[in-house]
């Protein structure tokens, strides 16, 4: 795990709220097929899985913010809106001071995005793939070579840097994913269920990466439904259920609110209160 130390430069962000999410709403139109499109019936939408209904929270540099919720709660939708993949139906999201709708490219240049199921270009080598993303991020040759060399050395990628990604093991692929996410030294790192489907050792690498991001004063937001991970890492927490925000505050406050209960019990209690309502 030591290898991940000094992976990044310190973030010297001036923003106290690196990510600001204000009254975020996302309504998905009714599903359609390619030839026949149905009209959206918005009255049905709030109950639909993955929709987001008036969510607000903030993420600060040097803190790990966790989005917690059962499957289909709207965690991925929220993270996709933060990373500009989806447009909010209403509400405002800013990242490093940039509005995700008005300045999506600036936002994307500030973030690194990683999920447990992130795919890689199997026909390319790690060298080629990292160069591609460095080029897209506008890294000059000198910076690219320096960053690549540092990251490859730290994660021991050199030995398989010229092999086709399709031939690599899951652990090796995850290392390439990490390099890809961090090559441009992003100020904000978005992790969407980053350990989902990974073995224990590979998942541990990701946990360490998240810790290192925090240590380097980066803003980390990650979604998970694994309580142990949240307990281990997070400073601030938001619980989403059926697209609605059920809790938003520090981890400390959450623990205090739920007394002697375990995090899992506290989470279930929060979600079940909603079900009773």
């Amino acid at each position: 795990m030591k290898c991940l130390e000094n992976l990044f430069y310190f973030s010297n962000s001036n923003f106290s709220k690196m990510i600001s999410v204000q009254h975020l709403v996302k309504i998905f139109p009714t599903k359609n097929n390619f030839f026949f499109k149905k009209k959206t019936d918005e009255s049905e939408m709030p109950s639909r899985a993955n929709s987001v209904d008036d969510i607000s929270f903030e993420c600060k540099p040097g803190k790990i913010f966790s989005l917690l919720g059962p499957n289909g709660a709207g965690k991925t939708t929220t993270l996709r809106m933060i990373s500009t993949m989806l447009k909010p139906t209403s509400g405002i999201v800013t990242v490093a001071g940039f509005d995700t709708q008005k300045n999506p490219e600036e936002v994307r240049s500030k973030i690194g995005f990683l999920t447990g199921s992130t795919g890689l270009y199997a026909r390319l080598t790690p060298n080629e793939m990292i160069k591609y993303f460095a080029d897209l991020n506008g890294l000059d040759d000198v910076t690219f070579k320096r960053r690549k060399d540092e990251l490859f050395t730290m994660l021991d990628v050199h030995s398989f840097a010229n092999k086709r990604i399709g031939t690599l093991s899951t652990g090796m692929k995850q290392k390439v994913s990490i390099v890809r996410t961090m090559i441009h030294d992003p100020e904000v790192v978005v992790f969407d269920e980053p350990t989902s489907g990974l073995d224990v050792i590979t998942a541990a690498n990701i946990i360490e990466l998240i810790r290192q991001c925090k240590a380097k004063n980066k803003t980390v937001i990650f979604s998970s439904h694994i309580m142990e991970e949240v307990n281990l890492l997070c400073d601030d927490l938001a619980i989403i259920h059926n697209g609605k925000l059920k809790f938003n505050g520090s981890m400390e406050d959450f623990r205090l609110q739920h007394g002697n209960h375990s995090l899992t019990e506290a989470f279930i209690e929060t979600v079940q209160n909603d079900l009773k309502i």
Binding site: S83, R108, L120, G138
Partner: peptide
């Protein structure tokens, strides 16, 4: 299908 679209869409390229 390969799951690389998210990575590409979160890169600074429109």
């Amino acid at each position: 299908e390969r799951g690389t679209i998210e990575t590409l869409l979160t890169s600074p390229v429109n």
